[in-house]
Design a protein around this nucleic acid. Sequence first.
DNA 1: AAATTAAATAGATAGATATAAAATTATAGA
DNA 2: TCTATAATTTTATATCTATCTATTTAATTT
Lengths: 191, 191
Amino acid sequence: MDESFDTLLAFFKALADANRLKLIGLLAQKESSVEELAAMLDINPSTVSHHLAKLAEIKLVSARAEGYYSIYRLETTNLERMARQLLAKETLPEVAKDLDRKAYDRKVLKDYLREDGTIEQLPTNRRKLDVILRYLLEYFEFGKIYTEKQVNTIIGGFYADISGLRRDLISVGYMDRERDGSAYWRVDESN
Amino acid sequence: MDESFDTLLAFFKALADANRLKLIGLLAQKESSVEELAAMLDINPSTVSHHLAKLAEIKLVSARAEGYYSIYRLETTNLERMARQLLAKETLPEVAKDLDRKAYDRKVLKDYLREDGTIEQLPTNRRKLDVILRYLLEYFEFGKIYTEKQVNTIIGGFYADISGLRRDLISVGYMDRERDGSAYWRVDESN
DNA sequence: AAATTAAATAGATAGATATAAAATTATAGA
DNA sequence: TCTATAATTTTATATCTATCTATTTAATTT
């Protein structure tokens, strides 16, 4: 998040008002004074001032003094830059990069594990069961070959229905084994 | 205004919220269920539902049912379309096309003319005086040649200081004349 | 059939924000 | 110097909206 997020949000907030959008439209045609803009929008000059200040904050408009007039103009360059940034493929994923993709997993684990890390109950829900299986999987090392007995010991440390969980780990593709059940290993799917 | 205005405004309003922007960011990475999104944003699922409904209204996201999950995905095409529209040069001026450019002039005229259309008082202000001069100008025909006496008669119908106004009309370039003052005519500047 | 689960909807509330009126500041002209 | 005017700032108010809780709907599992 941070910079790109805050910038984008400020940009959208600035344009998410009917009068401000109209101001942008008017200034896109020609630069104007507060008084003129107020007359055209039929609202109070102080309100226009207020809106222009918001637009100026993110540098979408700028003002110059001319006598006691403030002439505002649109900063088209900055507007274009924002639109282009929005089009850039990496912008949106970037917005969420600091958000917690693991939060759902933690929520599921919190709901189905005991304090000591053993499994309180197996979720019937496929998605949630998947979270539990990935949790179990962490107790198996990559590249190491396990006997069925070793697998049972590890799983058994977490839950009573050992053969069920063993089958699940294989059916979802997290682990694999020899046909005869003589060897088990963790599958590397690098995700 | 109308379509392009309403569409643009709805678009900005939809994205002008921190959580909605985060949702877009998350969905830009991968489609997800309401429950997952709620866990990641650490807010109530009903709130997420509400936000997604807003985003779906303008077709920025879409949902498909999967069991009793609703899996939402980002409609990248529509998002890109909006960003591109924003970049199009004609979009912004279009936004204000129905707004009343003449409102300021009317306001000035209302302030300085009497009911019968004669000039109550001359504004000292350059901009406002300009409005009055353009008002007067309408009483002169394009292409027609006037004698100074005719000019005086027309102006005199509006205000006492005839020679002052006559000079102003020429100095701002709305009218021109022969050096010797024998002929006056309206200048065509096509604006 | 009964119970469970996710999502959506409705209702209520707190917080944010657009607006206008009044007061203040700055500039121009007399 | 005094008065006009345009803009801004401040203050108050009214409207809007994000959020949560509670309820309803729809789908799945036992």
